[in-house]
Write a protein that binds this DNA or RNA. Structure first.
Lengths: 361, 361
DNA sequence: GCTTAGCACTCAGAGATAAAGAGTGCTAAG
DNA sequence: CTTAGCACTCTTTATCTCTGAGTGCTAAGC
């Protein structure tokens, strides 16, 4: 059952008007639009058909229509015209994105915050659960007497470290030896391959540093697991409160409560080749999210770091605008990291000395 | 102007009743309490006096009384009886605290989440802005060709690292030399002492690694600044929504919006020797927080790590209960970190292999 | 046969009014 | 000094009406 051109026009008009005003839209409103050349009566007829088809809904008899989830779906898949960012918008997006992101650890949170701000909606970021994480390199350093630094470089090109304090007098030589043992036995293995036997063997070959083994392994395994699992960051939840659909606190609270890292990590990931994916009312994930939608996309920053970034909002959200902003963000991500290692050219020290210039609204 | 014993009793009764019900309390309610032996008329008289003294307020003529900020202040400082945690409560606190905290980085967020859950209020943690942060030790490692790991150990005993990729062919020897130069010139100095002259000197002595200098310095300075500033983590904001005073979304939103890391970092820190401090309606910090209170305390985990942990809530909150829980938490913090290095005794590997057992409600 | 004007009908939301109830302050008696 | 009694105030809640937006249907127009 294909929609006629007129029906499409009407459906689109309804979605777009409702998205803006959050009020049910009536036949007159549509008839008044400049590119609509038929009377409200005609529109009423069409609206009745669309309602029958399950694309529109009526809050009550004497109210206008609002799009049903199916209606949104159809709009998003077929009717939505891509939103053109105005020059003003790109400007302000650029300005917002101008802050360079410094530390890779904080990157995900920072990205989340930024996207949340750009879209004025809650946003989340998830690191990709890439292929198996292994250790590429161990290194043990002597910080001072009885105090060692363990540095672990993972296959994902993240480096983790831990300060270990133990009442153990080891020489630099001992540590070097122990590092070598670790590098020989435990690199390129998944965490699950760290069998008790293997560890026992490592402990035997560790010489003077034997008692370091449990600490090192413990830390390494958690680092790997954490890296593998992919952490979820969620920010800007409170932005939902400014949306009219959450004018009622108890409803807002329901949604906000069910909107945690747990729920997010259960969201389906984008399938197939399409980078941008829109979930309309993901009831499967959580009942409370039924009038909520998610727009998400993959991102990939040059050096192996990739993941997922998404925005959560009322089903009635401006999909066109949100997707436009989100993809602009993702496309221009590279710039924020100065592609590879841009910190080189300028004399970079001074500008960071003033903490104030950092975290501004 | 001292309060009579009866006035104290009444004030305390009013605060405690209001804290529980969030409703203005009337003379009858108090008269009905078991340990009150005078009539509602008497209480009305006393209430009138207390109101005159500025300790109580009246939302409108025909309503009961609620405590004024001064009233809370007096209650908190002199009247509050310390709340005894029931066995049930300590049990469930213990259970909640049972999860061991693994990584020091995540510790602050985890602590915040936990406290927020324990008190059912938003919570924040701040690392102590201790004395000047300096670098204690630099170390440069070769990860693979053209890829280096910079490890910086700060005076605060935190270790930071960065993966540096540069098209620069250096030998292990070069790196060792460069590390030595860094350690000789830049340790034990505050970030502000990194003058252009000094850096130029370092660059000259750096030999083959000269072009690494800017990257290294850049990273080091931000690490120091960040460590100095003390990062703020805020979680559980949405818990406010379940409190009746925020039944009105726009009000809730005002408060939630002004409750960000920025505001928190402007809160006064506990002064003097008292560990626990209660701020009643910190209007000085943000106008919107005027009917909000903050309970905060210092914490100190064995190895040099210390900071501030606080809870934000409506002025009408159960101070006794909140302070009791918070101090229980702080006192038992040590346990969560297995005091020092407890990872030693048990064979620790296996239990981490299952990511599922980690993050449960 | 499709479109449109006209009209009766429905129903949520806004005000208005009334009744109920909680609490106060004051007075006078114990 | 305490307390019972009472008139008064003012919010809250319920009930009702009224208004207006919007619909669906019918009949006329192109």
């Amino acid at each position: 059952m294909e929609l006629t051109a007129r029906q499409q026009l009407i459906l689109r008009a309804i979605v777009e008007s409702y998205v803006q005003t959050a009020e049910p839209v009536g036949s007159k409103t549509i008839a008044a639009m400049p590119d609509v050349n038929f009377s409200s009566a005609t529109i009423r007829n069409e609206m009745a058909t669309l309602t029958e088809m399950g694309l529109l809904e009526q809050p009550h008899t004497s109210a206008g229509r609002i799009p049903s989830p199916d209606g949104y779906r159809l709009y998003v898949d077929e009717l939505m015209q891509s939103y053109r960012l105005s020059e003003d918008e790109t400007d302000s997006l650029n300005r917002a994105m101008d802050l360079k992101i410094q530390k890779v650890d904080k990157m995900l949170t920072d990205m989340g915050k930024l996207v949340s701000k750009l879209t004025d909606l809650p946003a989340y970021t998830v690191t990709a659960r890439s292929q198996a994480v292994t250790v590429q390199r161990f290194e043990l350093l002597m910080a001072q007497a009885r105090c060692f630094i363990l540095v672990v470089m993972l296959s994902t090109e993240t480096v983790k470290n831990k300060l270990i304090k133990l009442p153990l007098d080891l020489t630099e030589q001992d540590l070097k030896l122990f590092s070598a043992v670790l590098n020989a036995s435990l690199t390129d293995l998944e965490a699950s391959a760290f069998t008790p036997e293997l560890l026992a063997k490592v402990e035997r070959s560790a010489g003077a540093a034997a008692s370091l083994v449990p600490v090192v392994v413990d830390f390494t395994v958690s680092a790997m697991v954490e890296e593998q699992r992919g952490e979820v960051y969620l920010t800007g939840q409170t932005r939902l409160l400014s949306k009219p659909e959450y004018r009622d606190v108890s409803h807002a609270q329901e949604v906000l409560n069910s909107l945690d890292e747990e729920t997010i990590s259960n969201l389906p990931t984008p399938t197939g080749d399409k980078a941008m994916q829109i979930l309309v009312g993901p009831e499967e994930v959580a009942e409370e999210l039924k009038d909520t939608s998610v727009v998400m996309t993959r991102f990939d920053i040059g050096d192996g770091m990739q993941g997922l970034i998404g925005v959560v909002g009322p089903t009635r959200m401006d999909y066109a605008k949100v997707t436009a902003r989100l993809s602009y963000f993702v496309e221009n991500l590279g710039r924020m990291f100065g592609k590879g290692e841009s910190s080189l050219p300028q004399p970079p020290q001074i500008k960071h000395l003033n903490p104030a210039s950092d975290e501004r609204e």
